[in-house]
Simulated assay, not measured.
Amino acid sequence: MNRIGVDVKFEDGRSLIGEDPFETLSIARDLGFEGILLRTVDEAFPTLDSGAIREFAAEAKAQDMFVQLGLGKVNPYMTGELPRVRDLGRGSYLGGMERMVGLCAEYGWTEAWTAAGAYQHNLPAPFCFERFRTDVDWQDQLDATARFLRKLAPMLREHGVRLNLETHEEITTFELLRLIDEIGDDVLGVCLDPANLMVRGELVDDAVRRVAPYVNMTHLRDAVILPTEDGLSRFLAPIGQGAIDWSRLLDHVLGAHPGLDLVIEGIGGSRAEMLVQPDDPRWRAMHPDMDEADAEGLTKLASWFHAESLLGRAPTVAELRASPPVGPDYTDFLATSLRALKAALDSRATSSLAP
């Protein structure tokens, strides 16, 4: 049976839990979740106080809640944006990461979240993505990320902890797989956020199938893609209200890892519109693994959503830009997603029992 948890950090930096990680457990449980992902463990426990963490681990066990941790980012060109991790290492970002790896190992939290970039909310597309930085090439960032991961790998192996790189807005599944091949799948895997795949020009089903053997964590939510004045735009949606075929996704992922704990990621103050430009030569040049079938598939999907929006069966671009489908406490999106994911899991279980 697959347990379902929640990432307690939202897109705009807000939190489901406030400042108290102990309260987090109760809030998440009351919402119907069976676990939590503390993606910013250095915020929850700024000094990694062993007594507080021990008490937290005991409380999670008492409430029968699973715990996953996030250990910061691994792209050296943007880790300066995470000074708390460097502080934990007394001036060494690597040292801060190693302290958190030790923490994971101590409590058996052996699958940890990470990412290769951060979305810059204050910058216009495409410069909001690390991929399009003008001060350093994306390949140089990938090379530096690989070097950093190689430095961290011995301690990961020693402690039996694996980092799982998110299918984040800046990186493709092809690039993730190349990193895993270089570093080793015993210490590097994938945290699957299927809603981000279209942002990097990938068709969801194809991309999920590629990475499924390496998916050890998830950030689950849905996505809508529509034609806009500048190309195609991806918008976040609750599970079951977007383009993703959840039956196929679960077949791919759970076929490889039947007992995987699944985590839903929430939404912040917007639908997180992100621009996709498969017809722009400069944009396409930044996606060398993308082929015409990907471009045609995304364009066709956006056209279908546009037709559905004209018929009133799907939201319009204006509606998606206006406001997110969440209440003031940001839980509506999570509750809708949780119901839909449970239904998809139940349907899969029923199908497997059919003669």
Rank of each mutant, 00 (worst) to 15 (best):
G5N: 02
G327H: 05
E55M: 13
G269S: 13
L94T: 13
D329S: 11
G297Y: 02
M290V: 10
A349I: 06
R284W: 13
F33L: 07
V74P: 06
T114W: 03
E130M: 13
L82G: 00
N75L: 12
I27P: 00
E55V: 11
L220N: 03
M97S: 08
A349L: 11
A118F: 15
A115C: 11
G184R: 09
R313E: 14
A57N: 11
P324Q: 07
R209V: 04
L37F: 01
A318I: 03
T134D: 07
A354W: 11
R150D: 14
D137M: 12
A44G: 02
M274P: 00
V74A: 08
R3V: 00
R339S: 09
R90M: 10
G35Y: 01
R284V: 10
C104Y: 02
Q120Y: 13
C191L: 10
G95W: 05
P258C: 09
D206N: 13
V204L: 05
Y119H: 15
L298F: 05
G91K: 05
V74I: 14
L163M: 10
G269H: 14
L123S: 05
R150M: 12
P154G: 06
E11A: 10
A112R: 02
D30E: 09
I171E: 00
L38R: 01
R3W: 00
G268I: 12
K342S: 07
P278M: 04
I53K: 08
I244P: 07
L163R: 00
L226S: 04
G240M: 09
H121F: 15
H159L: 09
P83S: 08
A302N: 07
P83E: 12
L249Q: 10
L165G: 03
R348G: 08
I225E: 09
S323M: 08
G95I: 01
N164A: 03
D251T: 10
D42Y: 11
F132S: 14
G108S: 00
R99N: 01
R90L: 12
A116N: 15
P238Y: 01
Y77N: 11
H257C: 04
V263P: 08
Y93R: 05
P124V: 06
K9F: 14
V317M: 01
S247F: 04
P124G: 01
V276T: 08
G117H: 04
S92D: 05
I53L: 15
L254I: 06
R133G: 08
C191K: 02
L82D: 07
S233M: 13
M78R: 12
L249C: 13
D193R: 03
A112L: 02
L203S: 03
L25Q: 00
G5A: 01
V161M: 01
L94K: 14
P325H: 04
L192T: 00
A256M: 06
P76F: 08
M274N: 06
D143N: 11
L275G: 13
I17K: 01
L48H: 00
I27K: 14
E265P: 12
Q120R: 15
E55W: 04
E55S: 15
F33S: 03
T114K: 04
G95Q: 07
L165V: 12
D329W: 12
T110K: 11
G184V: 08
E106H: 07
E23R: 13
V199S: 04
Q68R: 09
A44Q: 05
S337H: 06
E11W: 09
G259R: 10
T331F: 05
M286T: 13
N75Y: 04
L341A: 04
L260G: 02
I225Q: 09
D230Q: 07
